[in-house]
Amino acid sequence: MSSPKETGKHPGAEAGVSRRGFLEVTGVGGAVVGTVVLDQPAQAQGAGARALGPGAVPITLNVNGKALKATVEPRMTLLDTLRGPLDHTGAKRVCDRGTCGACTVMMDGKSVYACTILAIDAQGTKIETVEGLTADLKNDVLINAFVEHDAEQCGYCTPGFMVAAKALLKENPRPTFAEVEAGLSGNLCRCGTYVGLRKAVLEAAQKGRA
């Protein structure tokens, strides 16, 4: 995989900028800091669509209601782009192959694995990360229910479960126990806090707004 950590090929790294600080991203129109040399887009063949890359290309992602800009290679995943250039580290990188659910984010209101989506391909969609979905830490019914029911131990899977649970309750505000089980089936917890997680989601549903 092409994570900045593994390959050191983070576009910003070449310009001598720290990984995190490479692209200081603000709201709409936020300036891109750092000098990035873009590859020339490959020539279009026949009537085919213009091919971008393989070097870094500028992209814009709608993350938690803000248009964020980054410059990444087409092979960068949405997860690595969120966690690296865009500094949204809530979604976690664990299995990196669409199995564990720690990277779960919402795309156009549906839960998806950010590790198995290309960042360039996520343009034009509405992305919501755990940061955006849990902005009101004190009054969030689901967060309080997670705390109440010990729905976490080491906590590394928690952001993914939180987003998966939000997606579940958004679609089905009054799920049965079986529906909660099925709705969380795309997320793994190695500590085994499933009992607490399911109770928390059920309680949040009963309390109404999550």
Partner: peptide, 20 residues
């Protein structure tokens, strides 16, 4: 993952012409 280029065709015809 090896590097690759990315094409985002707007029509089926354009997509087919983008393949090889």
């Amino acid at each position: 993952m090896q590097a690759f280029t990315y094409a985002n065709p707007k029509t089926l015809k354009e997509a087919l012409a983008s393949l090889a």
